[in-house]
Design a protein around this nucleic acid. Structure first.
Lengths: 339, 339
DNA sequence: CTGAAAGCGCTAACAT
DNA sequence: ATGTTAGCGCTTTCAG
C-alpha cells in the first residue's frame, strides 16, 4: 500500500505538506503543489479512510436511514437514494445505508463508532421513536418529513398539506362540488406518518373553506382494493365528480376501475394525483398532478447536512418545498347536471 | 468519547485484554470477561471504526454497487438491497452504497482508500467495463449476473435460461404450438446485460427443441408500448396462443391489452411471466410465473463474500439458482381449433 | 491467561 | 511556505 510518506519522499516534501496540499488547509507554492500532484498520480496514492478519520475525526460518510416497510412507494425511495448519493459525492462524502428495522440501535452504533458524521433519516413519523436519540446525538441529522414536534431538528419535506389543498382548489375552480381523497394504506395513517395525514388535513381544510363536500378514504395498495374503492365511492357519494389520489400504486388501477364502470375520465370523473411526475406523465391518460420532488428533497437534505457539518448556524429548522399542481388531461369541468 | 483504555482501567485489565475479549482471538477467563463486559455496558463503549480499520486492516464494510439506469425494475433492486443489508449485518458488516455512474472510479476509490473490504456488484453486463478492475482489486467481490467470461470471478444469479425454458415447457405441455417472448426494453439487450439474453436463449432453445414456433420481442416499459405490442403480436402471429413476459412494468398492461382486444386470459391466450412472486400474486388474475428470488440472491452473495473474506478457497465461482415455475391461473390449454 | 508497547496512516498543532 | 512531531484509538506481536 502506498502511503503519504511515500508520496512525501517521492515529491521531496514532508508528509504534512502532502496532507495540506490535499486538504487545502494551508497555502502551498504552485511548484510544490505540482510535484506533489505528480507524485500522487504516479504512485497512485489514496489516503486511508480509517487513518484519516482517526486523525481528524471525520469519516466523510453520511448515514442514510431507509424505510423498508409497506406503504412507501419504492420508486420514490430509489429516486431519493440516488439524489442523496449524488449530492453526497458532490460534497466528497460517501453514503452508508441503514434500514429502519435496525432502528435506533443501528443509528447509534454507526454514530458512536464514528462510521458516519451525519444522518439523513427518511420516513419520519409524527411521534418518531428515534427523535430522542437524534436530538442527543452529537452528529447532525436531517429528517425527511416533519414530526409533530420538530423544534431543534432540521426537517425537509414537500408541503403535503399544500398539495392536498392545491388539488381541491384546482377541482373547485373547475366547478366540482363533491370530492373524495383516496389516500395511503390504513397502516400509514395508523403509524402516524406525517405526510399522509397532512394531505388529508389540507384536503379537508380546503374543501371546508370552499364549501365542498369531501370524504377521505385510506386504501390498500392493490388493484383489487382500487376496484372495490371505486365501487364504494360511487355508491356512497352519488354526486361525486372529483377524486384526489395519494397512493401511487393504485393511481392507474383506480382510473381503470372508473373506466371499467363506464365512467369516462375526465368527462364523468376528474382525477388529480399526488405522485412523482414520472407516474403522471407516463400514464395512459396523463394525470393532473402535484409532483413529489424526491430528488430535490434528497439534494436539499444533503446540502443542509453539509451546512451543519460546516458548523454554520444559519441552517433553517424547517424546509418546506412548495406544492405545484400541473394540469394534465384527467381533470375537466364536471358533467353538467351534477348537483 | 469513551475509548478502550477507559474500559480497561474501569475493568482493571489492560487494553489488549479488552480488545481480545471483544474479538475472541484469545481465551479470556470468565471472571475477567464478565468484568470487561460490565464495564463496556456501564461506560457505553463503542470501538472507533476508523481506529480499528487502521489497526487491523478491516473496515467491516462491504460496498454495494447499484444499477440506477433504465430497464431495471426498482422493486427487485430494493428487495435485493434489503437482503444484502440484512445479511451483511448478520455478519457484522455495514453497507456502503455506490452507484453505477460512479463507475470504476468509484469502486477503485472505495477499495483503495480501504473504506470497504469487499464488493457486491449488481447488473453485470456480458462484457462489463468493470471486470478488469474487479479482477485486479485486492478485495473480493461477488457479481450479480454472469459476464461472458466469468472465470476467476464469483458470480450469482437466477438460472435465467432455465426460466425461459421452464415457461416454454409449461406452455408446450399444455398444448401450445406458437409462442412469443415479450422481453426487456431494447437498450437492455443492446448493452449486453446477460439476463435478458439468457432468457431469450433459453426460450428459443426450448421452443426449437420442442418444435414450436416462437418469436422474441424486446419491448419498452410503457403501457402504450404494451398495447402496441399486443396488436403487433396478433397480426404477425395469427396462431399465437402462448406469451411469455419478461418485463415487469408491462406485465399487467400487456394482459390488459389482450383483454381489451377481446381475448380472454387464459382461454384465448396463455400468459407466463418471469417476475417477482409479489407481482405475479398481486395481479388481478394471478399470473403463472417463474419467480425472481432477489432476496435469496442478495443473501447468497453476501455469504459468498464472507467466505472469501474468511480466506476460504472453496468458494464456487458460479452459483446458479434454479428456476421454478409456479402455475397460477393465466395459463391453460390453447383454444381448440388452434393449429 | 494477561500486560506492555510498537505501530497502523494520517492530521494538526507547533515550530521555523 | 514548509518541516517536525505528537497523537488519534485500536490491534497485535512479544513477553511473561
Amino acid at each position: 500500500m502506498v502511503k503519504i510518506t511515500d508520496v512525501a519522499r517521492h515529491a521531496n516534501v514532508s508528509p504534512s505538506t502532502v496532507s495540506y496540499a490535499l486538504s487545502g488547509k494551508r497555502p502551498i507554492s504552485p511548484e510544490t503543489r505540482r510535484r506533489i500532484e505528480d507524485s500522487i498520480r504516479e504512485l497512485g496514492y489514496r489516503p486511508h479512510a480509517g487513518a484519516r478519520s482517526l486523525a481528524n475525526g471525520r469519516s466523510q460518510v453520511i448515514g442514510l436511514v431507509l424505510p423498508l416497510r409497506k406503504g412507501i412507494h419504492l420508486p420514490v425511495v430509489m429516486q431519493f437514494v440516488t439524489s442523496v448519493l449524488t449530492a453526497a459525492r458532490e460534497h466528497d462524502h460517501d453514503v452508508l445505508l441503514l434500514t429502519q428495522n435496525e432502528g435506533e440501535e443501528g443509528i447509534e452504533r454507526v454514530a458512536r463508532s464514528a462510521m458516519a458524521d451525519a444522518f439523513v433519516v427518511m420516513d419520519v413519523e409524527m411521534e418518531d421513536r428515534r427523535l430522542p436519540l437524534l436530538r442527543t446525538l452529537d452528529r447532525p441529522c436531517v429528517l425527511i418529513g416533519f414530526p409533530s414536534e420538530p423544534a431543534g431538528l432540521t426537517c425537509v419535506d414537500l408541503d403535503f398539506a399544500g398539495a392536498g389543498e392545491a388539488c381541491v382548489e384546482h377541482l373547485a375552480a373547475l366547478g366540482h362540488r363533491t370530492l373524495a381523497l383516496v389516500g395511503s394504506p390504513p397502516e400509514v395513517y395508523v403509524r402516524g406518518t406525517g405526510f399522509a395525514r397532512r394531505v388529508a388535513a389540507g384536503f379537508t381544510a380546503a374543501a371546508g373553506r370552499l364549501g365542498l363536500s369531501a370524504s377521505v378514504h385510506p386504501c390498500p395498495e392493490t388493484p383489487a382494493a382500487a376496484r372495490a374503492m371505486a365501487e364504494q365511492l360511487l355508491h356512497e357519494q352519488p354526486g361525486l365528480s372529483g377524486v384526489v389520489i395519494h397512493n401511487e400504486p393504485i393511481t392507474q388501477p383506480l382510473i381503470a376501475a372508473f373506466q371499467a364502470m363506464g365512467l369516462r375520465v375526465p368527462e364523468d370523473v376528474s382525477v388529480a394525483a399526488i405522485c412523482p411526475d414520472e407516474t403522471a406523465e407516463q400514464a395512459a391518460v396523463p394525470i393532473t398532478s402535484v409532483s413529489i420532488p424526491s430528488s430535490e428533497i434528497g439534494t436539499r437534505a444533503v446540502e443542509l447536512l453539509m451546512a451543519k457539518l460546516a458548523g454554520r448556524d444559519d441552517v433553517p429548522e424547517t424546509t418546506v418545498l412548495p406544492a405545484a399542481l400541473t394540469p394534465r388531461i384527467t381533470t375537466a369541468p364536471p358533467p353538467s347536471g351534477t348537483p
